[in-house]
Amino acid sequence: MSKKTLTLMSKDKQLFNIEEHLAVQSVTIRNMVKEDGASSVIPLPRVDSETLALVIEYLNRQQAPEEDEDYVKKFVDERGEIPTLLELAQAALDLDIKKLMDAACMKVADLIKDFTLEEVREALRIENDRTPEEEKAIRDEFQWAF
């Protein structure tokens, strides 16, 4: 029996092929395959091609189940840049690949845990909507944590 291949399309319209039995690790893809057989190309409008390449690399891994945990960890460790990890985590979220998302989030958490507030806002693209007064109240309360 020949292995069925699926085609994924990134935000920038690049096409990636992947064997179906590997692709269905993504719950999103699995549901799409179930629904309409997914004969055509599956579009992923929020995932850019670099990230999708990473996701495909991850899905294609040939690891024994007992080594899988370590592999995921190593996989995200090697891509230790916060922007890359966030893209990866977002893609994993969209595609519903829980292990990959958890690992990426864990890595981000580890990287930002000693950040200052400004660094966190920058890294996670958040706008400061707090007034200085509000900030001071919390700063005073938990001074030891700053």
Binding site: C105, V108, K113, N128, R130, A145
Partner: peptide, 17 residues
């Protein structure tokens, strides 16, 4: 992401937004 942070970091990050 936040759920993997230690409590001490979370106390600080209350101020992020």
């Amino acid at each position: 992401i936040l759920s993997f942070l230690p409590a001490k970091s979370l106390l600080r990050f209350q101020l992020v937004c």
